[in-house]
Design a protein around this nucleic acid. Structure first.
Lengths: 223, 223
DNA sequence: CGAATTAGTCAATTTTTGCGACTAAAGTCA
DNA sequence: TGACTTTAGTCGCAAAAATTGACTAATTCG
């Protein structure tokens, strides 16, 4: 146990940086500060006066050299579970990075979600909540778009959704729903990817439209 | 400014206790600890070893004499905005209480959401997030059911949804969706409320069923 | 008793969705 | 070159689900 200065915060800001690597999600880990044999989420103690969002952004900046395109707080984790710091509590963020442009700094490594090294119990819980947040907010925030480069084909977008949802989607239905939502606009570029007809590139460019008149949805409790 | 002991946490746990009073939502406030002229959300400094959930539950306990039937963390609020304590940060919870059985302890008062007294900037932000959380999780958690007594009529349930959504719902559509979701079961009691045919009482009794096969929803960005 | 009021259901119509089949544009290989 | 394969993109029908107004049922009020 290290002595903790009374000037430092007794809580940390931890960030789960997520990317889509090949056909699975991956998160960025670094060597633990206290035990170099173990791995840890990137984190820092916020300085006095620093907002939580600023601290989270700075953690991402230190790890990637750039801010994630999308970041959201996923909560405070203050149970008794241990942490690489001796802090009593962590405020966690999840951030999304397109893999094509993400180049971690030295000491940081992408780990596929399905094959993570041992983490502290608290960080393990944070990662679980992060994955649930990503899946749960898929239809309320542009998650899939933020994991893709700024231009992409519709097949790539569909594959990203299939990866995030863990199930196959029907091409025509997917595109019909996408068109109705006015979320993408075509560029005048096309990409030929080996075989087959070239695909048009699109960019994320949401347009305002009026909310569809919908009744209540009793969607909770689906196990 | 009070001197802060180094033993106390530099963060507080604040709880937004929500009830449905008449036909609008209300939250529970108490006199501010530092300035008795002002009002404040109930809060406390968690003790070392106490989990955040336990601290939140205890705040509710102190205010109501009982635990809310449903409570959820809504995040950490650590910006520079001031708080009745001098803490740098607050972890906030939202809890739901049926108004019929809720009897606040002395010093605590229900305030309608649309007519709140001045609060500290941070607590104002917490209340805003709490209301958005309630609306946003309406179809993922049994929010409306937790604001009602344990048995209720379907008209009462529909009115609660109308209050929470801020719009009228069609009776037949509401009931069809409710039936399809297997969330309520009838009791053998009926209630005659003045005029009209008596209504059957129901209780919240969700049953497992298989998830309906649904495509993607691009629901975000509706303004 | 009849009018008014609230509960609860039905059924026609419209909207949304799932899905197979189709055309288009490229590469591969004989 | 030309048949075949592969991927992109679209069309249209059938099935499922939602919206809505109208209907029946049971009670109170006067």
């Amino acid at each position: 146990m290290r002595e903790r200065s009374s000037r430092t915060s007794p809580y940390t800001v931890d960030v789960v940086l997520v990317t889509a690597m090949g056909n699975e999600l991956a998160i960025l880990l670094t060597r633990s500060a206290t035990d170099r044999e173990r791995w840890s989420l990137p984190w820092r103690m916020p300085q006095t006066g620093e907002t939580l969002e600023a601290a989270g952004a700075r953690v991402a900046q230190d790890a990637l050299g750039e801010a994630p395109i999308w970041m959201e707080q996923i909560g405070a984790f203050g149970d008794a579970k241990r942490h690489p710091s001796d802090s009593e509590m962590s405020v966690a963020f999840v951030g999304l990075v397109p893999h094509e442009t993400a180049s971690p700094r030295g000491g940081y490594t992408w780990f596929p979600m399905r094959d993570l090294p041992p983490l502290s119990p608290r960080q393990r819980a944070i990662v679980e909540v992060a994955t649930r947040t990503i899946q749960g907010r898929l239809d309320q925030a542009p998650i899939a778009f933020r994991l893709l480069p700024s231009t992409f084909t519709l097949s790539e977008l569909q594959q990203m959704y299939e990866l995030l949802l863990g199930k196959r989607l029907h091409k025509a239905s997917f595109r019909r729903a996408l068109q109705a939502a006015w979320l993408v606009e075509p560029t005048d570029e096309w990409r030929s990817e080996g075989r087959g007809r070239p695909a048009q590139l699109f960019r994320y460019a949401p347009k305002k439209r009026r909310r569809p008149h919908r009744g209540v949805r009793f969607d909770f409790l689906y196990p």
